[in-house]
Design a protein around this nucleic acid. Sequence first.
DNA 1: AATGAATGAGTTTTCATTCAT
DNA 2: TATGAATGAAAACTCATTCAT
Lengths: 218, 218, 218, 218
Amino acid sequence: MHAPILADYSASALTDRSIAPEEKRRRILQAAVRVFARKGFHTSRVGDIAEEAGVAHGLLYHYFDSKDELLETIFHDTWTDLLAAMQDVEESGVPAREQLRGVAAILLRSWRRDPDLVRVLVREVARSPQLQEQLAEVGEAFAAIQRMIERGQADGDFRADLDARLASFVFYGALEEILTGWVLGQLPDDDEQVALAESTIVDVICGGFAGVPAGAAA
Amino acid sequence: MHAPILADYSASALTDRSIAPEEKRRRILQAAVRVFARKGFHTSRVGDIAEEAGVAHGLLYHYFDSKDELLETIFHDTWTDLLAAMQDVEESGVPAREQLRGVAAILLRSWRRDPDLVRVLVREVARSPQLQEQLAEVGEAFAAIQRMIERGQADGDFRADLDARLASFVFYGALEEILTGWVLGQLPDDDEQVALAESTIVDVICGGFAGVPAGAAA
Amino acid sequence: MHAPILADYSASALTDRSIAPEEKRRRILQAAVRVFARKGFHTSRVGDIAEEAGVAHGLLYHYFDSKDELLETIFHDTWTDLLAAMQDVEESGVPAREQLRGVAAILLRSWRRDPDLVRVLVREVARSPQLQEQLAEVGEAFAAIQRMIERGQADGDFRADLDARLASFVFYGALEEILTGWVLGQLPDDDEQVALAESTIVDVICGGFAGVPAGAAA
Amino acid sequence: MHAPILADYSASALTDRSIAPEEKRRRILQAAVRVFARKGFHTSRVGDIAEEAGVAHGLLYHYFDSKDELLETIFHDTWTDLLAAMQDVEESGVPAREQLRGVAAILLRSWRRDPDLVRVLVREVARSPQLQEQLAEVGEAFAAIQRMIERGQADGDFRADLDARLASFVFYGALEEILTGWVLGQLPDDDEQVALAESTIVDVICGGFAGVPAGAAA
DNA sequence: AATGAATGAGTTTTCATTCAT
DNA sequence: TATGAATGAAAACTCATTCAT
């Protein structure tokens, strides 16, 4: 698949003073992810993030306008990456079911790649102030999923009488709930389980999309 | 089915002293739901809630220990009601698919019954302090759904090779995402759409549960 | 000696509802003494006192104008009693040294009689609002001690070149510090020790009053 | 004797930024002493202290964890100084009576040096939370006095049958009561009176310690 | 770039007191 | 008398943000 997909917010080891300024910015973002993941956005103090990043808290305002902007940047960067990955999948030309499998892989595997980042994404989604910003990008993701489903309908793979928009919510909701289960420790999350979740979601949802007539189970 | 399902947190406003204390307590909870729905828990001030309830803010601490306890009470009361309704469904003896349809109906219809309450439930799920409490009750709901799915497997209605726990997350996630869509105004939510969502979820998910023969997609 | 000396603020057992109103007032005062002794005046809440007294906190305002008045009443009642006892001693006509011994006995023995009361007296002496009131009565006590010393000087028992006012502070300070030592648990306070403290103070201070020949220290 | 004895909490007021941070900390402590002296600890608001110091109240929490810590610091600093001075006296090798005279001088002369500080010390001694801390240091002072008395007994200057611990309370109590008299304005406190108090206490108490046999006054 | 002292608006919570019943 | 619901002033403390150095 793709190379990074997610902005690399997992910490690296350097602590010395000779750091490129752009690197320091990244380090602050990494620290923010870790702290937000640990304590939640509202409960996190700017000082905590600075401490985690090993800088004075004043420096934070050199790189970001506000604490809010930190969260927004995290959201924005991450969703930009995720969207790009989804776009790759969309342009791959594979069948709808395989496209949706790709989306599931992108989202679910991000958990193992950077759990703290997923924690933040899952737990701080529904905050009001920057909701508008988020909607723009998360909305894009929904739209992409919806297009994939519509493509499946056009190809005859999925039932034509399906409301594709509604269906995209069903699919995305299933993915997010699994991620939430991992975030809250309610579901096992080893590699095998991640793979199982991926195939289960795709089988169940796409199976449902494919439309097993009501009488099929009889 | 059951009678109220959700505690009636939709309110009217009065300030006189001729109100039973228990009624006053309820009124404060109603106000909290409205304010939390409007501004989010963290952004809401205790004074806002008191004003909305038409009481002095001090009175709030007569009935509740803290602002946190307000949210906890809302969660607890609501989930107690929801669980009771789900239990009725579970004990009804109808086939698994119909049971899950009942669960979908309970959760989705609550949106029209008390949108503010759903807004709060959806947006404040993942708050840390009372997470344990919430998990206990929301966890019950998941367990009930899981049992319904297992029942469907035992009856031969659902694929036997399905991880029922994972499946319960898929089902619940779909429901919650639809609710979120309504909360964020991304999905139409008139009566007809609610009914459509209900049947779409049940058809898709239960269809998927019923088992898409591996070859069907080939 | 006298009969009660101190208002009886130590609790009695009655808890039933058929209580004379005057008795209830006393009970509230007793409760206040216990609570103030335990937590200090400022840290004590009116509700604590009401609970300790077994009444609703509103009732407190039937008998007293304010929380401050509770403390004032305790001070006033106690010092009225103490002053009366000291006056008895003063009018007894015994030699100055014996009069001072009587004062020491009154103050020191009050510790065993009602430790909580002494705790309150010792710890809350220097509160601002009612300072004037207190000064009036504690001032009386100092005046009485001063008169006793002056009597001793007139009788030739005590050195004539002694500043009697200053001397009264020395004598009273010694007494209060011993009480403080008991309150803070820094000094043993069994009956024998109380008696030892009494005689030590009288011997040392009155010995000092009696006049250390200038040459004695040479 | 020693140089400063008491931390210099008497202050001047400035608001500009050209002040060393350590100096700012000292200034806040000075302000706290003045405000506590004027209104008492409990009645003083943090804002009052900040205003007196000419800083924003938030800055206070940059240097101290809480309002309580302010009082604790004042106590600690002061008693550290007082103890050091008493230790100098103790190590001087002069006779017991002269040592006690030194202690009296240290404590009584502190009144003229920094009346507000003494006001705080005298009026807020018996507060519960930090009592433990205080006891440690004030307890040291008592122990030193006790050792001086025991030294006097060993040298044959003081009666051997005296309970030295009790005696230390008598001596210290006399000193504190004089200070209290000055704090409450009940005793004249000009230089001459301070000297008189000093010699009166030493003469009376040490005279008493020296032990004028009961029959001596006859 | 980097620091951290300084600011002050903002918020929860406490609790003495009142008063309708 | 007695209750306890109701009030609201008050206060400590937090913390994002600024800015002199």
